[in-house]
């Protein structure tokens, strides 16, 4: 069994993420200290809440996550975990992210209910990405967010979703994967995505 760690840095309940991976066929280890990253076969970075608090809480893990990402360890960012991977966020000011992916976290333009809460569809743009193997175009997944990633490199976008504007709902580069939605709350589609991630880790 692979050693998949879920980083607990005080931003939300991790149990549902853990259950999701569990249902996908692998146990997980929740870690609260950076030493826990050592020897991990994969890292999951979940999170809900404000970017500023999250990046501050995540500080002790920063080097470890970046080193692991660089060395090819599969990494999955979920929701706020996706946003943290980017260069910077404009939420509540201007805060630097982990800068593993290039881009800026921006607020949705006005004109719609914010946050976006609910099930929205994936428009798949990179059907070859292993994270979405067996996930049909147009599948519904569950979102809760007020900000989105404006990516610098279009080729890192795996799927887009429309909410007033088109925003990246899945991004990926090599061993880095991230979803703006919550796969652990997205029914069968979400479980399939988590299973795909576990399969990527096992390869």
């Amino acid at each position: 069994m692979p050693d998949i760690v879920v980083i607990d840095y005080g931003m939300g309940n991790l149990r549902s993420v853990q259950r999701g991976i569990d249902a996908a066929g692998s146990p997980t280890r929740i870690i609260t200290e950076k030493d826990g990253l050592r020897g991990a076969d994969a890292i999951i970075l979940p999170g809900v809440g404000a970017f500023r608090d999250a990046i501050a809480n995540l500080a002790p893990f920063k080097q470890g996550i970046c080193d692991a990402a660089e060395s090819g360890v599969p990494l999955l960012g979920i929701c706020l975990g996706l946003q943290l991977l980017f260069t910077r966020s404009t939420e509540g000011g201007s805060y630097p992210g982990l800068d593993i992916l290039s881009g800026t976290i921006q607020p949705f333009p006005k004109g719609r209910k914010i946050p976006q809460i609910g099930w929205n569809t994936l428009t798949i743009v990179d059907a070859g990405n292993l994270l979405i193997r067996g996930v049909p175009d147009g599948s519904y997944v569950y979102f809760v967010h007020s900000y989105y990633a404006q990516v610098e490199r279009e080729k890192e976008v795996v799927a887009m979703t429309r909410y007033g504007i088109d925003f990246p709902s899945i991004v990926s580069r090599r061993n880095i994967f991230a979803t703006q939605f919550h796969p652990e709350k997205s029914g069968k589609t979400g479980l399939r995505i988590l299973k795909n991630f576990v399969d990527i880790v096992k390869r």
Binding site: Q116, G118, W119, N120, T121, Y140, F143
Partner: peptide, 8 residues
């Protein structure tokens, strides 16, 4: 497109 949720 965002779906309208039906919630029991």
């Amino acid at each position: 497109m965002l779906a309208t949720r039906v919630i029991p």
